[in-house]
């Protein structure tokens, strides 16, 4: 009888220990995932802050985020101290898009997106070079790729008048598509028809 009790206690102990270990691992994994996202966000915000000139007055920046239910872009206003140069302003707008909507809209770009470089030519062509690795988390599809591209193009054109068209590069190279669907080889001009008109 005593032996049975001992065996049962041992089994119970083993089950409880295994369960505890499993829950511990689960919590650890979740914490690691959420800390990775917050670390990326923190880095994005830090870069945003670094670009904001001290003492400058904050301006209202118009950002456009995808709205899947109606296949449109919805605007969101954010107050940012805009930098002095156009290329830094382009970076600021992009970082604000990467940071994501404050009103629960769909993301334009994954939080892991890294900007490798930004160039603006005299004739208003903005070249944006993303890191390919950072775009790996992009949600693929015609609709999602189209809305993401125009959320960038329309946001840049709305806030930096010198930007007339946008060309996307990945790891410094021209790529055929963003994620298998939408053609990235050409220049994109703003498409205001995608912006949702007011209620």
């Amino acid at each position: 009888m005593t032996r049975k009790v001992v065996i049962l206690t041992l089994i119970l102990f083993a089950v409880v220990a295994a369960g505890g270990f499993y829950i511990f691992r689960l919590l650890k994994r979740r914490a690691a995932a959420s800390s990775a996202v917050s670390e990326r966000l923190a880095r994005t915000r830090l870069t945003e802050a670094a670009l904001q000139p001290p003492g400058a007055a904050a301006s209202n920046v118009q950002l456009y985020f995808p709205s899947f239910p109606d296949g449109k872009l919805v605007s969101e206003t954010r107050s940012i101290k805009l930098a002095a140069t156009d290329t830094d302003r382009i970076r600021q707008v992009l970082l604000a898009l990467i940071e994501g909507s404050h009103q629960g809209r769909s993301p334009a770009l994954p939080p892991s997106t890294t900007i490798r470089g930004v160039f603006l030519t005299a004739d208003g062509a903005a070249y944006i070079d993303f890191s390919g690795k950072s775009l790996a988390a992009f949600d693929s599809g015609i609709e999602s790729e189209t809305l993401s591209i125009y959320s960038i193009v329309d946001s840049l054109a709305a806030n930096i008048p010198d930007v007339k068209q946008v060309k996307f590069l990945v790891d410094g190279q021209e790529v055929e598509t963003l994620d298998g669907h939408v053609n990235l080889t050409g220049f994109f001009v703003p498409d205001l028809s995608l912006i949702e008109s007011g209620p």
């Binding site: 949600d139 015609i142 189209t146 591209i149 939408v182 053609n183 994109f188």
Partner: peptide
């Protein structure tokens, strides 16, 4: 809707893309 769908651009005929979803995570 219209979109810069890569596969449609070189098609020399009436062409459409039909997308089903959502493959949202």
């Amino acid at each position: 809707q219209t979109a810069p769908v890569r596969v449609l651009e070189s098609i020399q005929a009436p062409a459409i893309a039909v997308e089903v979803g959502s493959l949202d995570p």
